[in-house]
Design a protein around this nucleic acid. Structure first.
Length: 454
DNA sequence: CTAGGGTTAG
Protein backbone atom coordinates (compact mmCIF):
# COMPACT_ATOMS: atom_id res chain seq x y z
CA UNK A 1 0.00 0.00 0.00
CA UNK A 2 2.74 2.41 0.93
CA UNK A 3 4.28 1.65 -2.42
CA UNK A 4 0.99 2.41 -4.13
CA UNK A 5 0.64 5.66 -2.32
CA UNK A 6 4.20 6.50 -3.29
CA UNK A 7 3.54 5.56 -6.91
CA UNK A 8 0.47 7.73 -6.91
CA UNK A 9 2.43 10.60 -5.41
CA UNK A 10 5.11 10.19 -8.08
CA UNK A 11 2.43 9.98 -10.74
CA UNK A 12 0.84 13.11 -9.42
CA UNK A 13 4.16 14.88 -9.21
CA UNK A 14 4.81 14.04 -12.83
CA UNK A 15 1.34 15.07 -13.83
CA UNK A 16 2.05 18.27 -12.00
CA UNK A 17 3.95 19.38 -15.08
CA UNK A 18 0.66 19.33 -16.96
CA UNK A 19 -1.09 22.70 -17.27
CA UNK A 20 -3.99 23.03 -14.85
CA UNK A 21 -6.51 23.37 -17.66
CA UNK A 22 -5.66 19.82 -18.65
CA UNK A 23 -6.21 18.42 -15.19
CA UNK A 24 -7.51 15.06 -16.33
CA UNK A 25 -4.49 13.17 -15.14
CA UNK A 26 -4.58 14.65 -11.70
CA UNK A 27 -8.26 13.88 -11.38
CA UNK A 28 -7.79 10.31 -12.44
CA UNK A 29 -4.80 9.93 -10.21
CA UNK A 30 -6.82 11.18 -7.28
CA UNK A 31 -9.80 8.88 -7.76
CA UNK A 32 -7.74 5.99 -9.14
CA UNK A 33 -8.08 2.70 -7.31
CA UNK A 34 -4.45 1.73 -7.52
CA UNK A 35 -0.96 2.98 -8.24
CA UNK A 36 -0.53 0.84 -11.33
CA UNK A 37 -3.59 2.27 -13.06
CA UNK A 38 -2.61 5.81 -12.16
CA UNK A 39 0.88 5.33 -13.52
CA UNK A 40 -0.50 3.82 -16.72
CA UNK A 41 -2.75 6.82 -17.20
CA UNK A 42 0.09 9.22 -16.69
CA UNK A 43 2.25 7.31 -19.13
CA UNK A 44 -0.45 7.21 -21.79
CA UNK A 45 -1.14 10.87 -21.37
CA UNK A 46 2.53 11.75 -21.75
CA UNK A 47 2.85 9.55 -24.80
CA UNK A 48 -0.25 11.12 -26.36
CA UNK A 49 1.36 14.50 -26.10
CA UNK A 50 4.21 13.15 -28.16
CA UNK A 51 7.05 15.53 -28.77
CA UNK A 52 5.97 17.72 -25.84
CA UNK A 53 6.87 14.99 -23.38
CA UNK A 54 10.50 14.76 -22.38
CA UNK A 55 11.87 11.24 -22.59
CA UNK A 56 12.93 11.54 -18.99
CA UNK A 57 9.30 11.89 -17.87
CA UNK A 58 8.28 8.96 -20.04
CA UNK A 59 11.00 6.82 -18.51
CA UNK A 60 9.87 7.82 -15.05
CA UNK A 61 6.26 6.99 -15.81
CA UNK A 62 7.33 3.70 -17.38
CA UNK A 63 9.31 2.84 -14.24
CA UNK A 64 6.21 3.55 -12.15
CA UNK A 65 4.16 1.19 -14.30
CA UNK A 66 6.91 -1.42 -14.11
CA UNK A 67 6.91 -1.44 -10.32
CA UNK A 68 3.36 -2.69 -10.08
CA UNK A 69 2.83 -4.35 -13.42
CA UNK A 70 5.88 -5.37 -15.45
CA UNK A 71 3.79 -6.92 -18.22
CA UNK A 72 1.85 -3.70 -18.75
CA UNK A 73 5.12 -1.80 -18.86
CA UNK A 74 6.40 -4.05 -21.64
CA UNK A 75 3.28 -3.43 -23.72
CA UNK A 76 3.58 0.30 -23.08
CA UNK A 77 7.18 0.12 -24.17
CA UNK A 78 6.13 -1.46 -27.45
CA UNK A 79 3.63 1.31 -28.01
CA UNK A 80 6.34 3.85 -27.25
CA UNK A 81 8.74 2.16 -29.65
CA UNK A 82 6.12 2.20 -32.42
CA UNK A 83 5.58 5.89 -31.85
CA UNK A 84 9.35 6.22 -31.80
CA UNK A 85 10.15 7.30 -35.31
CA UNK A 86 8.03 10.44 -35.18
CA UNK A 87 7.64 11.05 -31.47
CA UNK A 88 10.04 9.79 -28.88
CA UNK A 89 13.17 7.67 -28.95
CA UNK A 90 13.92 5.19 -26.19
CA UNK A 91 17.16 5.75 -24.33
CA UNK A 92 19.41 3.30 -22.52
CA UNK A 93 17.37 4.08 -19.43
CA UNK A 94 14.20 2.99 -21.19
CA UNK A 95 15.88 -0.28 -22.10
CA UNK A 96 17.13 -0.67 -18.56
CA UNK A 97 13.58 -0.45 -17.25
CA UNK A 98 12.42 -2.91 -19.89
CA UNK A 99 15.13 -5.41 -19.03
CA UNK A 100 14.20 -5.01 -15.39
CA UNK A 101 10.63 -5.97 -16.28
CA UNK A 102 11.76 -9.14 -18.01
CA UNK A 103 13.87 -10.13 -15.01
CA UNK A 104 11.23 -9.40 -12.39
CA UNK A 105 8.81 -11.49 -14.43
CA UNK A 106 11.28 -14.34 -14.11
CA UNK A 107 12.30 -14.13 -17.77
CA UNK A 108 16.04 -13.65 -17.57
CA UNK A 109 16.32 -15.13 -21.05
CA UNK A 110 14.25 -12.27 -22.46
CA UNK A 111 16.31 -9.82 -20.47
CA UNK A 112 19.53 -11.10 -21.99
CA UNK A 113 17.92 -11.09 -25.43
CA UNK A 114 17.00 -7.45 -24.92
CA UNK A 115 20.57 -6.74 -23.88
CA UNK A 116 21.78 -8.26 -27.14
CA UNK A 117 19.30 -6.12 -29.01
CA UNK A 118 20.57 -2.98 -27.32
CA UNK A 119 24.17 -3.86 -28.14
CA UNK A 120 23.26 -4.58 -31.76
CA UNK A 121 21.45 -1.27 -32.03
CA UNK A 122 24.75 0.38 -31.29
CA UNK A 123 23.87 1.84 -27.91
CA UNK A 124 26.77 2.40 -25.63
CA UNK A 125 26.55 -0.32 -23.04
CA UNK A 126 26.10 1.26 -19.63
CA UNK A 127 25.76 -0.36 -16.22
CA UNK A 128 22.09 0.58 -16.11
CA UNK A 129 21.49 -2.01 -18.82
CA UNK A 130 23.38 -4.73 -16.94
CA UNK A 131 22.23 -4.01 -13.42
CA UNK A 132 18.69 -5.41 -13.74
CA UNK A 133 20.18 -8.60 -15.16
CA UNK A 134 22.59 -8.84 -12.25
CA UNK A 135 19.67 -8.43 -9.91
CA UNK A 136 17.75 -11.15 -11.71
CA UNK A 137 20.69 -13.55 -11.48
CA UNK A 138 21.13 -12.83 -7.77
CA UNK A 139 17.43 -13.32 -7.10
CA UNK A 140 17.88 -16.74 -8.72
CA UNK A 141 20.74 -17.48 -6.32
CA UNK A 142 23.19 -17.21 -9.19
CA UNK A 143 25.35 -14.58 -7.57
CA UNK A 144 28.52 -16.25 -8.83
CA UNK A 145 27.34 -15.80 -12.40
CA UNK A 146 26.45 -12.19 -11.65
CA UNK A 147 29.85 -11.63 -10.06
CA UNK A 148 31.53 -13.09 -13.10
CA UNK A 149 29.75 -10.53 -15.25
CA UNK A 150 30.74 -7.66 -12.96
CA UNK A 151 34.37 -8.72 -12.65
CA UNK A 152 34.84 -9.75 -16.29
CA UNK A 153 31.93 -9.71 -18.72
CA UNK A 154 31.04 -6.08 -18.44
CA UNK A 155 34.56 -4.84 -18.94
CA UNK A 156 34.85 -6.95 -22.07
CA UNK A 157 32.04 -4.82 -23.48
CA UNK A 158 33.94 -1.74 -22.27
CA UNK A 159 31.35 -1.11 -19.62
CA UNK A 160 32.64 -0.16 -16.19
CA UNK A 161 30.51 -1.56 -13.35
CA UNK A 162 29.29 1.18 -11.02
CA UNK A 163 28.43 1.23 -7.33
CA UNK A 164 24.93 -0.08 -8.13
CA UNK A 165 26.39 -3.11 -9.90
CA UNK A 166 28.62 -3.88 -6.94
CA UNK A 167 25.91 -3.35 -4.38
CA UNK A 168 23.63 -5.79 -6.20
CA UNK A 169 26.41 -8.37 -5.84
CA UNK A 170 26.86 -7.53 -2.15
CA UNK A 171 23.18 -8.14 -1.58
CA UNK A 172 23.28 -11.35 -3.62
CA UNK A 173 26.15 -12.69 -1.52
CA UNK A 174 24.36 -11.82 1.72
CA UNK A 175 21.22 -13.45 0.39
CA UNK A 176 23.20 -16.66 -0.09
CA UNK A 177 24.54 -16.43 3.46
CA UNK A 178 27.94 -15.40 2.18
CA UNK A 179 28.19 -12.11 4.02
CA UNK A 180 31.87 -12.72 4.79
CA UNK A 181 32.56 -12.70 1.05
CA UNK A 182 30.38 -9.62 0.75
CA UNK A 183 32.55 -7.95 3.36
CA UNK A 184 35.66 -8.85 1.37
CA UNK A 185 34.15 -7.41 -1.80
CA UNK A 186 33.19 -4.27 0.13
CA UNK A 187 36.80 -3.90 1.24
CA UNK A 188 37.97 -4.46 -2.31
CA UNK A 189 35.76 -1.62 -3.45
CA UNK A 190 37.05 0.62 -0.69
CA UNK A 191 40.71 -0.21 -1.35
CA UNK A 192 40.46 -0.05 -5.10
CA UNK A 193 41.41 3.59 -5.11
CA UNK A 194 38.21 5.38 -5.86
CA UNK A 195 37.01 3.65 -9.00
CA UNK A 196 33.89 2.51 -7.30
CA UNK A 197 33.77 3.58 -3.69
CA UNK A 198 31.15 1.96 -1.47
CA UNK A 199 28.46 4.30 -0.19
CA UNK A 200 25.90 4.14 2.60
CA UNK A 201 23.81 1.61 0.66
CA UNK A 202 26.78 -0.71 0.09
CA UNK A 203 27.73 -0.57 3.76
CA UNK A 204 24.16 -0.98 4.98
CA UNK A 205 23.72 -4.03 2.78
CA UNK A 206 26.73 -5.79 4.25
CA UNK A 207 25.97 -4.73 7.82
CA UNK A 208 22.47 -6.14 7.42
CA UNK A 209 23.86 -9.36 5.96
CA UNK A 210 26.31 -9.81 8.83
CA UNK A 211 23.58 -9.17 11.38
CA UNK A 212 21.25 -11.66 9.74
CA UNK A 213 23.98 -14.26 9.66
CA UNK A 214 24.47 -13.77 13.38
CA UNK A 215 27.79 -11.94 13.36
CA UNK A 216 27.06 -8.74 15.32
CA UNK A 217 30.74 -8.14 16.11
CA UNK A 218 31.73 -7.99 12.49
CA UNK A 219 28.62 -5.96 11.73
CA UNK A 220 29.60 -3.45 14.37
CA UNK A 221 33.20 -3.29 13.11
CA UNK A 222 31.88 -2.63 9.62
CA UNK A 223 29.61 0.08 10.97
CA UNK A 224 32.62 1.72 12.66
CA UNK A 225 34.53 1.49 9.43
CA UNK A 226 31.72 3.25 7.62
CA UNK A 227 31.76 6.07 10.16
CA UNK A 228 35.56 6.31 9.85
CA UNK A 229 35.07 6.89 6.16
CA UNK A 230 32.74 9.76 7.00
CA UNK A 231 29.76 7.95 5.57
CA UNK A 232 26.71 8.78 7.67
CA UNK A 233 24.19 6.08 8.57
CA UNK A 234 20.70 6.78 7.27
CA UNK A 235 17.24 5.53 8.13
CA UNK A 236 17.89 2.16 6.47
CA UNK A 237 21.18 1.58 8.30
CA UNK A 238 19.57 2.36 11.66
CA UNK A 239 16.40 0.41 10.90
CA UNK A 240 18.38 -2.63 9.92
CA UNK A 241 20.27 -2.56 13.23
CA UNK A 242 17.08 -1.94 15.17
CA UNK A 243 15.39 -4.84 13.37
CA UNK A 244 18.22 -7.18 14.32
CA UNK A 245 18.07 -6.12 17.96
CA UNK A 246 14.28 -6.48 18.00
CA UNK A 247 14.55 -9.92 16.51
CA UNK A 248 16.86 -10.88 19.34
CA UNK A 249 14.40 -9.25 21.76
CA UNK A 250 17.11 -6.88 22.97
CA UNK A 251 14.56 -4.11 23.30
CA UNK A 252 16.65 -1.90 25.57
CA UNK A 253 19.40 -1.82 23.00
CA UNK A 254 16.92 -1.31 20.18
CA UNK A 255 15.57 1.71 22.04
CA UNK A 256 19.09 3.05 22.53
CA UNK A 257 19.70 2.90 18.80
CA UNK A 258 16.32 4.48 18.17
CA UNK A 259 17.17 7.38 20.47
CA UNK A 260 20.59 7.83 18.96
CA UNK A 261 19.10 7.87 15.49
CA UNK A 262 16.59 10.54 16.43
CA UNK A 263 19.31 12.58 18.16
CA UNK A 264 21.36 12.39 14.99
CA UNK A 265 18.50 13.90 13.07
CA UNK A 266 17.40 10.74 11.25
CA UNK A 267 13.63 10.31 11.32
CA UNK A 268 12.26 6.80 11.92
CA UNK A 269 9.91 5.57 9.21
CA UNK A 270 7.35 2.83 8.89
CA UNK A 271 10.04 0.11 8.71
CA UNK A 272 11.69 1.34 11.88
CA UNK A 273 8.45 1.52 13.83
CA UNK A 274 7.23 -1.82 12.54
CA UNK A 275 10.39 -3.50 13.80
CA UNK A 276 9.89 -1.92 17.20
CA UNK A 277 6.21 -2.84 17.37
CA UNK A 278 7.09 -6.39 16.44
CA UNK A 279 9.98 -6.48 18.87
CA UNK A 280 7.87 -5.32 21.80
CA UNK A 281 5.13 -7.80 20.89
CA UNK A 282 7.48 -10.75 20.61
CA UNK A 283 9.03 -9.91 23.94
CA UNK A 284 5.58 -9.79 25.49
CA UNK A 285 5.42 -6.03 26.03
CA UNK A 286 2.10 -5.29 24.40
CA UNK A 287 1.72 -1.98 26.21
CA UNK A 288 5.02 -0.73 24.81
CA UNK A 289 4.08 -1.99 21.35
CA UNK A 290 0.84 -0.03 21.41
CA UNK A 291 2.66 2.99 22.76
CA UNK A 292 4.91 2.92 19.69
CA UNK A 293 1.98 2.38 17.38
CA UNK A 294 0.45 5.55 18.77
CA UNK A 295 3.78 7.33 18.64
CA UNK A 296 4.24 6.55 14.97
CA UNK A 297 0.76 7.82 14.16
CA UNK A 298 1.30 11.04 16.09
CA UNK A 299 4.60 11.48 14.24
CA UNK A 300 2.70 11.30 10.99
CA UNK A 301 3.93 7.83 9.98
CA UNK A 302 1.03 5.66 8.86
CA UNK A 303 1.13 2.05 10.05
CA UNK A 304 0.83 -0.30 7.09
CA UNK A 305 -0.21 -3.91 6.55
CA UNK A 306 3.03 -5.22 7.99
CA UNK A 307 2.69 -3.15 11.16
CA UNK A 308 -0.83 -4.34 11.79
CA UNK A 309 -0.04 -7.94 10.85
CA UNK A 310 2.72 -7.95 13.39
CA UNK A 311 0.38 -6.84 16.15
CA UNK A 312 -2.31 -9.25 15.00
CA UNK A 313 0.14 -12.13 15.05
CA UNK A 314 0.95 -11.44 18.67
CA UNK A 315 -2.74 -11.37 19.60
CA UNK A 316 -3.40 -14.59 17.69
CA UNK A 317 -0.58 -16.38 19.44
CA UNK A 318 -2.00 -15.35 22.78
CA UNK A 319 -5.52 -16.60 22.27
CA UNK A 320 -6.90 -13.21 21.33
CA UNK A 321 -8.09 -13.87 17.79
CA UNK A 322 -11.26 -11.84 18.26
CA UNK A 323 -9.22 -8.71 18.90
CA UNK A 324 -6.94 -9.53 15.99
CA UNK A 325 -9.98 -9.90 13.78
CA UNK A 326 -11.18 -6.46 14.85
CA UNK A 327 -7.89 -5.00 13.68
CA UNK A 328 -8.23 -6.95 10.46
CA UNK A 329 -11.70 -5.60 9.80
CA UNK A 330 -10.76 -2.03 10.61
CA UNK A 331 -7.74 -2.35 8.34
CA UNK A 332 -9.93 -3.44 5.44
CA UNK A 333 -12.38 -0.64 6.21
CA UNK A 334 -9.55 1.86 6.00
CA UNK A 335 -8.56 0.58 2.60
CA UNK A 336 -5.44 -1.37 3.63
CA UNK A 337 -5.29 -4.65 1.77
CA UNK A 338 -4.34 -7.60 3.97
CA UNK A 339 -1.63 -9.70 2.37
CA UNK A 340 -0.91 -13.40 2.50
CA UNK A 341 0.94 -13.03 5.79
CA UNK A 342 -1.96 -11.23 7.43
CA UNK A 343 -4.31 -14.02 6.44
CA UNK A 344 -1.82 -16.70 7.44
CA UNK A 345 -1.41 -15.28 10.92
CA UNK A 346 -5.11 -15.00 11.59
CA UNK A 347 -5.86 -18.40 10.08
CA UNK A 348 -3.17 -19.90 12.25
CA UNK A 349 -4.66 -18.15 15.28
CA UNK A 350 -8.08 -19.62 14.55
CA UNK A 351 -6.47 -23.01 13.99
CA UNK A 352 -4.79 -23.16 17.38
CA UNK A 353 -7.96 -21.90 19.05
CA UNK A 354 -9.94 -24.57 17.24
CA UNK A 355 -12.26 -21.94 15.75
CA UNK A 356 -12.86 -23.88 12.56
CA UNK A 357 -15.95 -21.96 11.45
CA UNK A 358 -14.20 -18.59 11.69
CA UNK A 359 -11.15 -20.05 10.02
CA UNK A 360 -13.02 -21.32 6.99
CA UNK A 361 -14.99 -18.10 6.79
CA UNK A 362 -11.74 -16.18 6.60
CA UNK A 363 -10.36 -18.61 4.07
CA UNK A 364 -13.39 -17.99 1.84
CA UNK A 365 -12.92 -14.26 2.23
CA UNK A 366 -9.32 -14.66 1.24
CA UNK A 367 -10.22 -16.52 -1.95
CA UNK A 368 -12.92 -13.96 -2.73
CA UNK A 369 -10.32 -11.24 -2.40
CA UNK A 370 -8.25 -12.89 -5.11
CA UNK A 371 -5.54 -14.03 -2.73
CA UNK A 372 -3.87 -17.24 -3.79
CA UNK A 373 -3.63 -19.56 -0.75
CA UNK A 374 -0.14 -21.02 -0.49
CA UNK A 375 1.35 -24.08 1.16
CA UNK A 376 1.39 -22.47 4.52
CA UNK A 377 -2.30 -21.59 4.39
CA UNK A 378 -3.33 -25.08 3.32
CA UNK A 379 -1.08 -26.68 5.91
CA UNK A 380 -2.71 -24.53 8.55
CA UNK A 381 -6.21 -25.60 7.52
CA UNK A 382 -5.12 -29.24 7.50
CA UNK A 383 -3.50 -28.82 10.89
CA UNK A 384 -6.67 -27.30 12.37
CA UNK A 385 -8.87 -30.22 11.34
CA UNK A 386 -6.34 -32.93 12.11
CA UNK A 387 -5.75 -31.49 15.54
CA UNK A 388 -9.42 -31.95 16.37
CA UNK A 389 -9.36 -35.53 15.12
CA UNK A 390 -11.33 -34.54 12.03
CA UNK A 391 -8.93 -36.33 9.75
CA UNK A 392 -11.42 -36.84 6.92
CA UNK A 393 -12.02 -33.10 6.78
CA UNK A 394 -8.27 -32.61 6.72
CA UNK A 395 -8.01 -35.01 3.80
CA UNK A 396 -10.65 -32.99 1.95
CA UNK A 397 -8.51 -29.88 2.31
CA UNK A 398 -5.55 -31.96 1.19
CA UNK A 399 -7.27 -32.86 -2.08
CA UNK A 400 -8.39 -29.26 -2.53
CA UNK A 401 -4.78 -28.22 -2.15
CA UNK A 402 -3.72 -30.57 -4.93
CA UNK A 403 -6.58 -29.40 -7.12
CA UNK A 404 -5.08 -25.94 -6.81
CA UNK A 405 -1.89 -27.33 -8.25
CA UNK A 406 0.05 -27.06 -5.01
CA UNK A 407 2.38 -29.94 -4.31
CA UNK A 408 2.05 -31.09 -0.71
CA UNK A 409 5.30 -30.70 1.16
CA UNK A 410 6.84 -32.39 4.13
CA UNK A 411 4.80 -30.34 6.58
CA UNK A 412 1.59 -31.29 4.82
CA UNK A 413 2.31 -35.00 5.02
CA UNK A 414 3.60 -34.89 8.55
CA UNK A 415 0.51 -33.06 9.73
CA UNK A 416 -1.77 -35.61 8.11
CA UNK A 417 0.25 -38.56 9.38
CA UNK A 418 0.04 -37.15 12.85
CA UNK A 419 -3.71 -36.72 12.38
CA UNK A 420 -4.15 -40.34 11.38
CA UNK A 421 -2.03 -41.45 14.33
CA UNK A 422 -4.24 -39.42 16.64
CA UNK A 423 -7.32 -41.37 15.57
CA UNK A 424 -5.23 -44.59 15.47
CA UNK A 425 -5.72 -45.24 11.80
CA UNK A 426 -2.20 -46.50 11.50
CA UNK A 427 -2.54 -48.13 8.09
CA UNK A 428 -3.57 -44.75 6.59
CA UNK A 429 -0.68 -43.08 8.39
CA UNK A 430 1.73 -45.63 6.98
CA UNK A 431 0.32 -45.27 3.46
CA UNK A 432 0.82 -41.51 3.60
CA UNK A 433 4.29 -41.97 4.98
CA UNK A 434 5.19 -44.13 2.02
CA UNK A 435 3.61 -41.66 -0.39
CA UNK A 436 5.63 -38.88 1.21
CA UNK A 437 8.83 -40.89 0.99
CA UNK A 438 8.79 -41.00 -2.76
CA UNK A 439 7.04 -37.71 -3.49
CA UNK A 440 8.83 -35.35 -1.17
CA UNK A 441 12.56 -35.07 -1.17
CA UNK A 442 13.50 -33.31 1.99
CA UNK A 443 16.58 -31.17 1.71
CA UNK A 444 18.23 -32.64 4.74
CA UNK A 445 16.72 -36.05 4.36
CA UNK A 446 15.20 -35.69 7.81
CA UNK A 447 11.51 -35.40 8.48
CA UNK A 448 10.39 -33.58 11.55
CA UNK A 449 7.19 -35.10 12.82
CA UNK A 450 4.98 -32.61 14.64
CA UNK A 451 3.47 -33.07 18.05
CA UNK A 452 0.14 -31.51 18.83
CA UNK A 453 -0.25 -32.01 22.51
CA UNK A 454 2.55 -29.98 23.98
C1' DC B 1 14.51 6.33 -14.49
C1' DT B 2 18.93 1.08 -11.07
C1' DA B 3 21.30 -0.75 -5.34
C1' DG B 4 20.02 -1.58 0.87
C1' DG B 5 15.82 -2.26 5.81
C1' DG B 6 10.18 -4.41 8.68
C1' DT B 7 5.45 -9.24 9.33
C1' DT B 8 3.54 -15.31 8.96
C1' DA B 9 5.97 -21.03 9.63
C1' DG B 10 3.75 -28.05 11.76
Amino acid sequence: MARRVAARARARARAGGVPRSEGTIQDRARVGSGGAEDALDVFDELLRRGIGAPIRSLNGALADVARDNPAAAVSRFNRMARAGASMVTPTVHTYGILIGCCCSAGRLDLGFAALGHVVKKGFRVEPIIFNPLLKGLCADKRTDDAMDIVLRGMTELRCVPNVFSHTIILKGLCHENRSQEALELLHMMADDGGGCLPNVVSYSTVIDGLLKEGDPDKAYATYREMLDRRILPNVVTYSSIIAALCKGQAMDKAMEVHDRMVNNGVTPNCFTYTSLVHGFCSSGQLTEAIKFLEKMCSNGVEPNVVTYSSLMDYLCKNGRCTEARKIFDSMVKRGLKPDITTYSSLLHGYAIEGALVEMHGLFDLMVQSDMQPDHYVFNTLIYASAKQGKIDEAMLVFSKMRQQGLKPNCVTYSTLINGYCKVTRMENALALFQEMSYKVTSKRGVTKIPLYDK
